[in-house]
Computed example of a mutant assay.
Amino acid sequence: MMTACIRTDRECADICGYLEQAISRNSPFVSELAGVCATICQACGDECKKHDHQHCQDCAQACYECAEACKKIA
């Protein structure tokens, strides 16, 4: 039941972590990575929002905020 949610959470955490590393080393690909990160964060938020658990709702909100921040960087 939660397989897609967990999978998307992991994808989101991985790209967010990688973007953080790319920003810290001043990678020339930050804009492109931020665009991908925004897409994945949005998808993660959409998936988590489907579930009634409070931690899923909290995750969805955080993902939506992250997606907006990434869009500004992209």
Rank of each mutant, 00 (worst) to 15 (best):
E20P: 00
A22K: 01
D58Y: 11
K49R: 11
E32G: 15
C37S: 15
Q61M: 12
E11Y: 07
K72G: 13
K50G: 01
A67Y: 10
Q21E: 09
A22E: 05
D58F: 10
A62P: 03
S24M: 09
M2Y: 14
E65R: 06
T3E: 13
S31A: 15
E68K: 06
A22F: 02
C70P: 04
R10P: 04
T3W: 07
E11A: 10
S24L: 04
C63G: 02
H55E: 10
I23E: 12
L19E: 03
E11P: 12
D9E: 07
A22H: 03
R7F: 05
E47P: 00
K71P: 04
S31P: 13
A62M: 10
E32F: 07
N26F: 12
G45E: 02
T3D: 14
A4N: 11
A22I: 01
S31C: 10
C56A: 12
A38S: 12
R25S: 11
D46H: 02
E20Q: 07
Q57S: 02
C5H: 10
R10Y: 08
H55K: 05
C44F: 05
T8W: 01
T8A: 07
T39M: 08
A67D: 10
I15R: 02
Y64S: 11
A34D: 02
A43N: 05
L19R: 00
Q61Y: 09
A43M: 09
L33A: 14
L19W: 11
L19C: 09
D9P: 00
C63M: 09
Y64K: 06
A60H: 05
I6Q: 05
